[in-house]
Each structure stands twice: as structure tokens, then as C-alpha cells.
Computed example of a mutant assay.
Amino acid sequence: MNTKKKNLLLIFTRNPELGKCKTRLASKVGDYAALEVYKFLLEHTVSVTQNLNMEKYVYYSESIWKNDVWDNTVYQKKLQNGNDLGMRMKQAFLDGFDSGFEKIIIIGSDMYDLSQKNLEEAFAKLDEHDYVLGPAEDGGYYLLGMTSFKEELFQNKDWGTDTVLHNTLSDLKNENYFMLKTKNDVDHYEDIKDIPVFQQFLKHIKE
């Protein structure tokens, strides 16, 4: 199996619909600006993943869109399946391992702080480690990778809270894992208000 066939990148994304994405950000900047920010983040995620030499699956939250930023010739498109984020991620990993992939990493689609090089490094770390984890500043994680399936990682988590990283590390305490650099994902106005590239979406905001 060549590298492309061994490595799988899972990208979890929300369908970019008005009023349905980045709701915490929208509470400050409004639904329209939040949607524009999210579309910008999707395009960024495409730019840092499209040239990776591996299989790439995009998992949609609501429905599969045929014609969007995710090129059908680059990404396989699938639908998330499960009652909560843990169940949906678990199913995606299981599908990947069942298909014969040896190294699988999952990311979201709202990380402006992520580069192609970061993702290549994460896959490289799985040569010497069984798990790789990218901690987020808000107490969650922006990346999870593994070479063997571990069900506990997807159970007993209060998803979307600042306890997820701590509880995930507890699950990994007896495992051979690597921690990447902490990064900031985009959930709140404070996450983007001082980053120049986002100013175009925030002109209407009054502090």
C-alpha cells in the first residue's frame, strides 16, 4: 500500500448555511458576517489540505453538497452519522480503518491557524507514536490522529466544553502519543478580532 493509500485525512465540516454555523461568533457579529467568516475558513482549509498526498474524506453535518469548495476529484464526500460529535467521529475512524488505512487524522474546517506543513508533521509523528493530538486554546483539540482505534476517546466527553482535552489526555495516559503545538480555533469574536485578515468581515462591529 503506498503512502496515499495508507494515510487518511478526515475533515468534519458544517454545511455553510445562514444562521446554522458559528453560532457563538454570530451572537456578536451577526449571522451574515459569521457565515462569511466560516466560508473564508472553509476556503483556507481547502488550501492547506488539497495538495496533501493522501486520501481525503469530507464529512458533512447535514447533507452532501456536490458543487462547493470541496473539489469532487480531490475529496470523497460523506455524511456524518451519530447522535453526538463523539459518535460521529468514532464512526468516521472506524470506516477508515475498515477500509484498510493505517494512519488516520481528523480535523475540523475552521482552523485559520493550521497549515499544510502542520498536517504533514502530524502524519509523520504517527510513524513513531500511536496517537497524535493537537490541543486547542479553549480546552478542546483541533486534531486527533491514530494508528489503532481506541473507543474511549469518543466516550464520556462533554463535547464543546473546556474539559475535552483534559479527559482525552486521561484516556491516553498509558499510550504512546505526541502533543502538537497548541493552536487557537475560531469560535468567538475574541478569536479573530485582532487578526488582520478577518477585519473585512468585522467592519460593522462596534466595540
Rank of each mutant, 00 (worst) to 15 (best):
L143C: 04
K6E: 15
K203G: 14
M87S: 15
V69Q: 05
W159P: 03
L169V: 03
S148K: 14
N156H: 12
L79R: 04
L153W: 09
N174R: 12
G82K: 02
E175C: 07
Y38M: 11
E137S: 13
S27H: 12
T23I: 15
F40E: 03
T182R: 05
Y38I: 09
E43R: 15
Q200Y: 08
L143A: 06
L119C: 06
I195R: 03
G108V: 02
L126G: 04
K181Y: 08
D110A: 11
D113Q: 13
K183S: 05
L126T: 03
L114M: 14
K22N: 12
K5F: 10
G96Q: 09
H188D: 15
K103R: 14
K193I: 09
D171C: 14
L133D: 00
T182Q: 14
N7R: 15
L25Y: 06
N81Q: 14
S115A: 06
V164C: 09
N167I: 00
S47K: 02
G100H: 04
A122K: 00
L133N: 03
T182H: 08
N67A: 07
K173W: 09
A136S: 15
D127A: 06
V74Q: 03
G139R: 00
Y59S: 06
E17Q: 12
K77Q: 13
D95M: 13
I205K: 05
I11N: 03
S63K: 15
L143D: 04
W70E: 06
L42K: 07
G134T: 01
M179C: 11
N118C: 10
S115R: 06
E36N: 11
H44T: 02
K56P: 00
T3P: 04
D127H: 11
D130A: 01
Y38P: 00
K20L: 11
Y38T: 07
Y141T: 03
F93W: 08
L25K: 02
Y189M: 02
G100T: 04
R24G: 09
P196F: 01
F198I: 02
F93A: 04
S61K: 13
D113R: 08
N167P: 09
D138Y: 09
L180Q: 13
D138Q: 03
G145Q: 02
L94R: 12
M146N: 05
D187A: 11
A92P: 06
Q50A: 14
